[in-house]
Simulated assay, not measured.
Amino acid sequence: MKSARNTLPDEPPNALTCGIDWARDDHDVSVVDARGREVHRCTVEHSAAGLRELLTVLARTGVCEVAIERPDGPVIDTLLGAGITVVVISPNQVKNLRGRYGSAGTKDDRFDAFVLADTLRTDRARLAPLTPDHPATVALRRVCRARKDLVAHRVALANQLRAHLRNVFPGAVGLFADLDSPISLMFLTRFDCQDRADWLTPKRLAT
């Protein structure tokens, strides 16, 4: 996602703004009216059901604009897919903005949701909405994320295998350049213990 060059309207639709403090397991939601009064607060789970509940809350209260701290992920996709205007305010900005309200600066998810909503209300001139990425960009990002996950999984398994071999078959460690290379895995499949590997002579190994 990227911030669009177009700006927000001078006044939010229905005179309401929303702030969502994103977290791993659940998200705090705060809705603020044109006078900066919190008119609704709730917490939704980070799940398909929770995101549906979020859209229901926004529709019921009449909210069309949301401020959040991150520019991607399922929450963003859900909001944009529902036609909600999304504005990103970075965590560092939120940390600095807490001082407006006399906060000591410590993070409080419920309070941060309010700060996000109220900042969207008061600082509209310097904020810009997100625009969805091109479908090809979205697809590429998903492929890259999947590849990154697979590489991390492969590295973790190779490390587990190396640790196990150091205990029961240390001679196989370092025999080939990469422990998880095809030739190394073929070797370990055929010679899975020291007893079988003892059959090898230098000539047989070379062959």
Rank of each mutant, 00 (worst) to 15 (best):
T131G: 05
L185A: 01
L51H: 07
T201Y: 04
V87C: 03
V94W: 06
P91F: 11
T43K: 15
D192K: 03
I68A: 07
V39S: 08
Q160G: 05
R196S: 09
P71L: 03
E65I: 12
A113P: 05
T189E: 14
G105W: 01
A125W: 06
L8C: 01
A82K: 02
A48F: 05
L185S: 01
D112T: 10
D118A: 05
A104M: 13
P129N: 05
D123G: 06
C193G: 06
A4K: 08
R154Q: 10
V39Y: 07
V173D: 02
G36S: 06
V155W: 04
A104V: 14
N159C: 06
D123Y: 08
L54G: 02
D108H: 13
V39K: 10
H27Y: 11
P129A: 03
L127H: 00
R98G: 06
T137A: 09
I89M: 03
A158Q: 04
D198W: 10
A4Y: 02
M1C: 10
S181C: 02
H46G: 09
L80P: 00
V31K: 02
T207D: 11
A49D: 09
K203T: 15
V143W: 02
R204Y: 00
D118W: 03
D195V: 15
L157F: 03
P182C: 04
G62H: 02
A34Y: 11
S30H: 13
A49C: 03
L116W: 09
H153C: 10
C193D: 15
V66A: 07
T137L: 06
S47C: 07
D33W: 00
C193Q: 05
D198V: 09
N159M: 08
S90G: 12
G19D: 07
R52Q: 13
P12K: 06
A172N: 10
G81N: 01
T78E: 03
F187Y: 08
N14G: 01
R60M: 08
D112M: 09
D21L: 08
R41P: 04
T7Q: 11
A172E: 01
D26C: 12
A82F: 02
G171F: 02
G83I: 09
D26E: 14
L188T: 09
H40E: 11
A49P: 00
T78I: 03
Q93A: 15
V32A: 10
P182T: 12
L130Y: 07
P12E: 07
K148T: 14
Q194H: 14
A15V: 05
A172M: 01
I20A: 07
R124S: 05
H27S: 10
I84V: 14
R100H: 10
T207A: 15
E53Y: 07
